[in-house]
């Protein structure tokens, strides 16, 4: 045994210290921890955007309420929530070692993401055709359109990124380059995108519903 490995006066040895220093935080692998740190940072980004929206809405008299129907946003919510479940099924299949099933469910999740994005773009096109743009709003203050397109656009960007990640990680998992853990980490991101939508829907859509 080397001198460095000896415990002196109850202190930990070098090998023990090395083990403590290199042990993963909260028993979470480094890649997963990195995703959690990203999620914490990104939640602050979305919280900032939604707070700016709340601030502006509260400080602006005659805030417009242009939405007449909730059908589109209800379908989008259903799709996104269901895609979280399909992602869970995929991750569980991967953890059980069922590669074809895992790949299939991850691709179903990606398709749901594409469907969500398509519905989102259709809604955007409808609003743009009515004259709403980033700097113009036919129903009143231009701030409404700016905030609406910014917040939903940021979320749509995350969904698009998530779809690309799901397809890329899914294919690499199928090809044996990635493991079940990598699918789980991608799933974390996907659930986060779903979680953010739970706040975007009531604040940006439902509070602006025309009664």
């Amino acid at each position: 045994m080397s001198q460095a490995d000896l415990s002196i006066h109850g202190q930990v040895s070098r090998s023990q210290a090395t083990e403590i220093m290199t042990a993963p935080a909260f028993s979470v692998p480094a890649k997963k921890m990195a995703m959690w740190l990203f999620i914490i940072a990104d939640s602050a980004t979305f919280a900032g955007c939604l707070f700016a929206y709340g601030f502006t809405r509260n400080a602006t008299p005659n805030w417009p309420t242009p939405f007449h129907s909730i059908t589109n946003v209800a379908v989008m919510t259903l799709i996104l929530l269901t895609s979280s479940l399909t992602m869970l099924i995929g991750v569980r299949a991967a953890q059980a070692g069922d590669k074809p099933k895992a790949f299939r469910w991850v691709m179903i999740t990606a398709v749901a993401g594409v469907l969500f994005a398509a519905l989102h773009l259709r809604e955007w096109m409808g609003m743009i055709s009515e004259g709403a743009t980033l700097f113009h709003n036919p129903w009143g203050t231009p701030l409404f359109s700016s905030l609406f397109f910014s917040i939903t656009g940021l979320h749509l960007l995350h969904v698009t990124g998530g779809v690309v990640a799901l397809i890329a990680v899914g294919i690499r998992y199928q090809g044996g380059r990635y493991k079940a853990d990598d699918l789980e980490i991608t799933g974390l991101y996907w659930h986060f995108v779903d979680l953010v939508w739970m706040f975007v829907v009531p604040l940006v859509y439902l509070l602006n519903l025309s009664h």
Partner: peptide
């Protein structure tokens, strides 16, 4: 449990920190 508290504390603190601006929005209106 450890990760749960880690995520909760950081996220809640950041979000709570943003709430200082509400008073100004009421002042504006």
């Amino acid at each position: 449990r450890g990760l749960r508290w880690f995520v909760l504390i950081f996220t809640v603190l950041v979000i709570l920190g943003m709430q200082y601006g509400w008073t100004d929005s009421y002042r504006l209106i």
